[in-house]
Nucleic acid binder design. Structure first.
Length: 476
RNA sequence: CGGAGUGUAGCGCAGUCCGGUAGCGCGCCAGUUUUGGGAACUGGAUGUCGGGGGUUCGAAUCCCUCCACUCCGACCA
């Protein structure tokens, strides 16, 4: 009887329901259990909590550097865009009109019932929209800044928030307000622009693999799914554990569409006025959702080491009060040694019981847990566990070797996570055994609230054929 | 924005049909014993019953209305 009860307890997962039982619900529970984000009083807008925001900060850190390495400069443009700007490009208007928030007044005043209302006297001569994307307002600056071919290429990026009034919001994946970086580049020739759109997609691809441990599948959007106004939209699709694809980020070759509407002209070497060619490329907080759905398990989040708010959590095991100062000092010293070895670490100083601290770390997906108690100090050992290997992944090393060993383990963990995700992805796609099934797979429309676009594995002739049919490319 | 469902303590829920003192489990706080993959006992605190309006002696419960969330559609750069 007691035996049976114990079995049940041990087999319990931290997250209910499990991935198999209800994937969308599992996703939300993981976010809650990891304390990453929550819904806000404002419809469709999320509150990103410190543990979730730290993941975004790591995105800014790693991807931000990769973008700078492409000789792109950071800048900042206004949140509000005059309505006339966005109205300059017909297709663009068509694409965004239905989800724009509009600012029409600049002041409140009390009406005769004492309620605060927009002051009728403060109505703006021209309404402003809250940016859903910044092509038009950055185009206006490019118009001013570009005179000569010597001013090109001009490469700008901004980290900001944008707003798209989504009807069915979903935390991280589709929110009315979200954070992103948007890059906007201008070139003198069509060839340079297309090469740039592809190169920036490659930057994202590298970020997906090298930092998020998410294997990407590169594709080109079909004409009706292109960014409004774009000549070509390149995309990276990531595959979730439920077999669905999620658009991770996009890179657009905008041709001369926006150069035309914003009048971005330059005097070329040959003395003639020419229109510039532009690109834009963006990656949003949605990728955090993708990371969760690619890596999480039934005990919660598993953070890829490079994206983890802290890579190691040091768990002090305290029993006897007299040992406490000694153990805490050892933990703090270990934290310093880890930092010296290039590993970010945090000591769990909460008063929770050891097992609760451990479960908190498991649910948050901290890559490595390091246990330090009286036993370790007495034996001169350190016990650490990789989150992705479960309780069987415990490793015992000499206390002094721990920092180096953990640094090594984190690297291996990244490799393993990427490999695991890639194997799963290949399995999902090769499950479709006939050409008809594969075609159906790529042509599939929305399922369970997540959009399925299209994707394919590179280097397979059959998939290549389908790729052609669905206007998907295997390389960028 | 169309269809369906839900809103009661921090979380998960019962109570609503048939109006009559606001409940349960977990969590939280205090204490004791415990402590290395989710501890046990004892005691305790916590509610504009989503908001507003109406019916009634009396509303979580009935009626109207608004709001939010979840799922299914539509939309999705």
């Amino acid at each position: 009887m007691a035996e049976a009860a114990k079995t049940v307890k041990n087999s319990k997962t931290a997250i209910t329901p499990t991935r198999d039982e209800n994937f969308p619900e599992w996703y939300q529970q993981v976010i809650k259990a990891a304390d990453m984000a929550e819904n806000s009083p404002v419809r469709g807008c999320m509150i990103i909590k410190p543990y979730g925001f730290a993941v975004w900060e790591n995105t800014q850190k790693h991807l931000g550097q990769m973008i700078k390495d492409e000789e792109v400069q950071n800048a900042y443009f206004p949140l509000l865009i005059p309505l006339s700007y966005i109205a300059k490009e017909a297709e663009h208007v068509e694409g965004f009109a239905k989800e724009c928030a509009i600012v029409t007044h600049h002041r409140l005043s009390a009406n005769d019932k004492g309620q605060l209302v927009p002051d009728p006297a403060s109505e703006l001569a021209e309404p402003m929209i809250i940016r859903p994307t910044s092509e038009t307002i950055i185009g206006e600056s490019m118009h001013n800044w570009v005179q000569s071919y010597r001013d090109l290429p001009l490469k700008l990026n901004q980290w900001c928030n944008v707003m798209r009034w989504e009807m069915r919001p979903r935390i991280f994946l589709r929110t009315a307000e979200f954070l992103w970086q948007e890059g906007h580049n201008a070139f003198a020739t069509a060839e340079e622009a297309d090469a740039d759109a592809r190169r920036m997609l490659q930057v994202y691809y590298n970020f997906f693999e090298d930092c998020m441990a998410v294997p990407g599948i590169v594709g080109v959007k079909t004409p009706d799914e292109r960014f409004p106004g774009a000549v070509e939209t390149y995309t990276i699709e990531a595959f979730m554990q439920d077999g669905k694809a999620l658009q991770g980020c996009t890179s657009h070759n905008l041709g001369q569409t926006f150069a035309k509407s914003s009048d971005i002209k330059f005097l070329d070497k040959d003395g003639t006025q020419k229109l510039a060619w532009t690109t834009s490329w963006g990656l949003t907080t949605r990728t955090i959702g993708a990371m969760i759905m690619v890596h999480g398990d039934d005990d919660g989040m598993i953070m890829p080491p490079k994206m983890a708010p802290h890579q190691v959590v040091i768990l002090p095991f305290l029993k006897d009060d007299s040992d406490t100062p000694k153990i805490m000092a050892a933990c703090e010293q270990m934290k310093k040694d880890l930092v010296k070895a290039g590993v970010s670490a945090q000591v769990d100083k909460t008063e929770a019981r050891s097992s609760d601290k451990m479960w908190a770390a498991i649910k948050k997906g901290v890559p490595v847990r390091l246990e330090i108690g009286a036993r370790e100090l007495a034996e001169g050992n350190a016990v650490f566990t990789r989150r992705d290997l479960g309780k069987d992944g415990k490793k015992i090393v000499a206390l002094a070797d721990a920092p180096a060993e953990i640094a090594k383990a984190l690297e291996q963990m990244h490799t393993d996570m990427l490999e695991r995700a890639r194997t799963r992805l290949n399995g999902q796609i090769s499950d479709a055994s006939t050409l008809a099934e594969v075609r159906q797979f790529f042509a599939a429309e929305k399922q369970g609230g997540l959009r399925i676009d299209y994707a394919l594995v590179r280097g397979n002739a059959e998939y290549e054929a389908i790729a052609k049919e669905f206007s998907v490319s295997t390389r960028c």
